[in-house]
Write a protein that binds this DNA or RNA. Structure first.
Length: 645
DNA sequence: TCACGGAATATTTTT
DNA sequence: TATTCCGTGA
C-alpha cells in the first residue's frame, strides 16, 4: 500500500497491529487492547486517518467513557492532522443520547424540554414516593431510598425483572417485593409527569426511539457512517443494543476494549459484550494489541500473575521491550497512619531524585480510604488533587443553588421546588407540598409563585424568594447574571445553616466561573448533570493547567482508568478492604475486584508499591483484618518483594 | 406543622 | 462514621 500520499506517517508511528486497526476503515472490527498497549494512540490515529482519507468529520462518531476522554483524543488528532478533527462527534453514550433526544424530539413525539436528574435527585424523588405511599409507616425495614435506586437501576441496566434483582442480590427484601414493584411503577410515572429523565432513561429512551422510528434510525445511520466505541468492556446490554441499531448497512463499526479491565459490572456493564461482538456483526475482524509501552517488565510480570488468577478471560499476556525496572514491593505497615507516613517519606525521596509530584498517584478502592493520608499531606503542607469518590456537585450548597436555576428551566420541577422551599424558615414538608400544588395549579410557570399567599411564620422568607423570581422574570439576564442573583438571595440562607460557610461560598463562586462559559441555561444544567466536575473543590478544574500539574494525584481506581504515572502507590491492599468484605461472597464480585487490582497495578510505569496496614479493627463488623489482599498474597519474592516497616 | 435531638442503620466503585 | 429516621416538645 502506498503510504506516501498521507501527511502522517502512520507506518512509522504505529506497530503493525495498531496500524491494522487504524487502516481497517470498513466493516466491523474488534480490537482487544491490553493495558498500556497504545489504545488511545490507535484511536487517535484512526480518527486522523479517516479524516485524511477524505471522510467528512461529521460522519464520524466516537463514543467514550467520559467526555474528557473524547475531547482529549480529538484534540490530539487535530494536532496530528489539522483542526478538521475537532468537528468529529464525540462523547459518552449518555451525552449522545441527550443530544439525539433533544434534537430530534419533535419527530419522535418527545418532550424536548426534559430535565436530566442525577442520582441524588432520583433518590429524593423515590424518597417522596416512599413516604407518600405509606411504606415507611407500614413496614419497619422497607429498603431505603438509596437501596431502592440501586435496585431499580440494576434492573434496567442488566435488563432483568425487579424480582430477579431482589432474589439475586437482596433476598432479605423478598417480603417487600410487591411494595418495591409498586414503587417502581410510581417512580416511572412521576418521572414521566415531570419530564424527568434519569441516567438510565437516557439510554432506554434512545434505544426505544431507534427501535420505533425507522426514519430516525436511517437518518442517524446515514449521518454516522464510521462509529468507534472505546472501553467496550464497560458497556451494558442497552448500549450494545444502541450500537446495533445505530450501525448502518456499511457496518463500519470498531469497538475497542479489554475484558480484563472490566470494572463496572456493578452498574450493569457486561464484559461479555466483547465476546459477543463477533456474533452480533458477522465478518468481524479481530485485532489484538499485546505489546505494552507503559510499564517495565517486572510490573508486567506481576500484573500477568494477578490476572492469571481470574477464572474467565480471553488469554492474553502483556510483554514489553522496555528493559530494567524494579520489582514491585508489598509494604507491611503497622497501622493506617504509618501507611500515610510511608507515602509522605517516599514522596520526599522521589522529589529529590527529580520525579515531580504530578508523575505520582495514590490509588484506592473507595473514596474514604484516603482520609488519613489527606490529613497527613495537609499537615506537611503538600498539595494534591483528589479524583473520584465524593463529588463537588453533590454537596448540599451547590445543589441548593442549582435547584433555583433548574426551576427557571423546568418550572414544574418538583424536586427542586421542594428543595428550595424547605430552605426557608418555617416551611416544612407539609407547607412545601401545599405551595408546590398551588404553583402548579396556577399554570403560569414559575410565575405561579407570585400569587402565593405567604402564611404566618414563613411570609417574609417566601417574599424574598418571590422577589428573586420577579427580578429574573423581568430582565433578560445572561446565565451568569442569573447565577449572581440566585447567589445574592442564597448567601444569607447559607450563612444561617453552615458555620463553615466561607469555604462553601468559595465553591459557589467557582460555579459562577463555570456558568460564565455558557450562553444557555439549559446546556449548563445538562452538563452539570451529565459531566460534573470530577475533582473535589480546590479550584483545579477551573484554573486550567498551571498550578495543578505539579500536584500529587489521589484517585479511586475507577477514576484512574486509562491513566498512567511514573510511580503508583496502592493503599489498603488488605484482605477485607480490597477485596472489600461485601464482595467476598460471590465469585463474580470477587472476579471484578481482581480485575480492579489488575487495572490499578497496570497504571504504573516504573515503581509500584502495595501498602497493607496490619491489625486494623473494623468496628462495624467487629472483625480485624490482618492478611494482605488475596490477590497479591503468596506471590514469590522474586516478583513481589516484602518490606516491613 | 416545624425544629431539634437521640437512635438506628448501612458502609464501594459512576454515567 | 455519618447519614437518615423517628419521636418529642413547642
Amino acid at each position: 500500500m502506498d503510504e506516501k500520499k498521507y501527511k502522517i506517517q502512520y507506518d512509522q508511528a504505529l506497530n503493525s497491529s495498531q496500524l491494522d486497526a487504524v487502516i481497517m476503515a470498513d466493516g466491523p472490527v474488534l480490537v482487544i487492547a491490553g493495558a498500556g498497549s497504545g489504545k488511545t494512540r490507535t484511536l487517535t490515529y484512526r480518527v486522523a486517518r479517516l479524516v485524511e482519507e477524505g471522510i467528512s468529520p461529521s460522519s464520524i462518531l466516537l463514543l467514550t467513557f467520559t467526555r474528557k476522554a473524547a475531547e482529549e483524543m480529538l484534540k490530539r488528532a487535530s494536532r496530528l492532522l489539522d483542526n478538521r478533527c475537532e468537528k468529529v462527534s464525540g462523547g459518552t453514550f449518555h451525552s449522545f443520547a441527550n443530544m439525539v433526544l433533544r434534537r430530534k424530539a419533535d419527530s419522535i413525539g418527545f418532550d424536548r424540554g426534559f430535565s436530566i436528574i442525577d442520582r441524588p435527585d432520583s433518590e429524593s424523588l423515590i424518597s417522596m414516593l416512599r413516604k407518600e405511599m405509606g411504606f415507611v409507616s407500614k413496614y419497619r425495614s422497607f429498603p431505603r431510598k438509596q437501596t431502592l435506586a440501586t435496585i431499580f437501576s440494576k434492573a434496567v441496566n442488566k435488563v432483568l425483572p425487579i424480582e430477579e434483582v431482589i432474589f439475586n442480590d437482596y433476598s432479605h427484601f423478598t417480603p417487600f417485593l410487591d411494595g418495591i414493584m409498586e414503587l417502581q411503577q410510581a417512580y416511572g410515572k412521576r418521572k414521566a409527569e415531570h419530564s424527568f429523565l434519569d441516567f438510565d432513561d437516557l439510554l432506554v429512551c434512545l434505544r426505544l426511539a431507534l427501535r420505533e422510528h425507522s426514519d430516525l434510525r436511517d437518518r442517524l445511520a446515514r449521518q454516522y457512517r464510521y462509529i468507534m466505541v472505546d472501553e467496550y468492556q464497560d458497556t451494558n446490554q442497552i448500549q450494545a443494543d444502541i450500537i446495533y441499531l445505530l450501525v448502518g448497512p456499511e457496518k463500519n463499526i470498531m469497538v475497542v476494549g479489554d475484558d480484563s479491565q472490566s470494572i463496572y459490572a456493578f452498574r450493569g456493564a457486561n464484559f461479555k459484550n466483547i465476546i459477543n461482538f463477533p456474533a452480533m456483526f458477522p465478518g468481524t475482524q479481530i485485532i489484538r494489541l499485546e505489546e505494552n509501552y507503559r510499564s517495565v517488565q517486572p510490573i508486567l510480570d506481576l500484573a500477568n500473575i494477578i490476572i492469571d488468577r481470574a477464572e474467565e478471560k480471553y488469554t492474553k499476556t502483556l510483554f514489553t521491550s522496555k528493559s530494567g525496572g524494579l520489582v514491585p514491593s508489598l509494604i507491611t505497615a503497622t497501622d493506617e497512619n504509618s501507611q500515610s507516613r510511608f507515602i509522605v517519606d517516599r514522596l520526599l525521596e522521589l522529589e529529590e531524585t527529580g520525579i515531580s509530584q504530578n508523575q505520582i498517584a495514590v490509588l484506592f478502592r473507595a473514596g474514604f480510604h484516603s482520609f488519613d493520608l489527606e490529613i497527613e499531606l495537609n499537615r506537611m503542607g503538600m498539595s494534591f488533587v483528589k479524583v473520584g469518590g465524593f463529588k463537588f456537585i453533590e454537596s448540599a450548597h451547590i445543589k441548593d443553588v442549582l435547584a433555583h436555576l433548574r426551576i427557571l428551566a423546568n418550572p414544574y420541577d418538583r424536586i427542586s421546588w421542594y428543595r428550595i422551599l424547605l430552605l426557608i424558615e418555617n416551611i416544612g414538608p407539609r407547607a412545601a407540598q401545599q405551595i408546590y400544588d398551588d404553583i402548579v395549579s396556577n399554570q403560569s410557570g414559575y410565575g405561579g409563585i407570585f400569587s402565593i399567599a405567604g402564611k404566618k411564620g414563613y411570609a417574609a422568607g417566601l417574599d424574598r424568594l418571590k422577589m428573586l423570581f420577579r427580578e429574573i422574570h423581568d430582565h433578560p439576564f445572561s446565565v451568569t447574571e442569573m447565577g449572581e442573583h440566585v447567589l445574592e438571595y442564597y448567601v444569607p440562607l447559607l450563612k444561617a445553616s453552615y458555620d463553615d460557610y466561607p469555604k462553601r461560598l468559595k465553591d459557589l463562586e467557582q460555579v459562577l466561573v463555570i456558568m460564565s462559559r455558557y450562553t444557555r441555561l439549559e446546556s449548563f444544567l445538562t452538563d452539570m448533570a451529565l459531566e460534573p466536575p470530577n475533582t473535589s473543590f480546590d479550584d483545579s478544574f477551573v484554573q486550567s493547567g498551571e498550578a495543578d500539574n505539579q500536584r500529587l494525584t489521589l484517585s479511586t481506581i475507577h477514576s484512574a482508568k486509562g491513566l498512567e504515572w511514573h510511580t503508583v502507590f496502592i493503599i489498603w491492599a488488605l484482605d477485607g478492604r480490597f477485596p472489600s468484605i461485601q464482595s467476598m461472597e460471590k465469585t463474580e464480585d470477587l472476579e471484578e475486584e481482581l480485575r480492579l487490582m489488575y487495572v490499578a497495578s497496570t497504571r504504573a510505569k516504573e515503581n509500584l508499591y502495595y501498602i497493607c496496614p496490619m491489625a486494623v479493627y473494623d468496628r462495624h463488623t467487629g472483625l480485624s483484618f490482618s492478611r494482605p489482599s488475596r490477590f497479591i498474597d503468596g506471590i514469590p519474592e522474586e516478583y513481589l518483594q516484602r518490606i516491613y516497616i
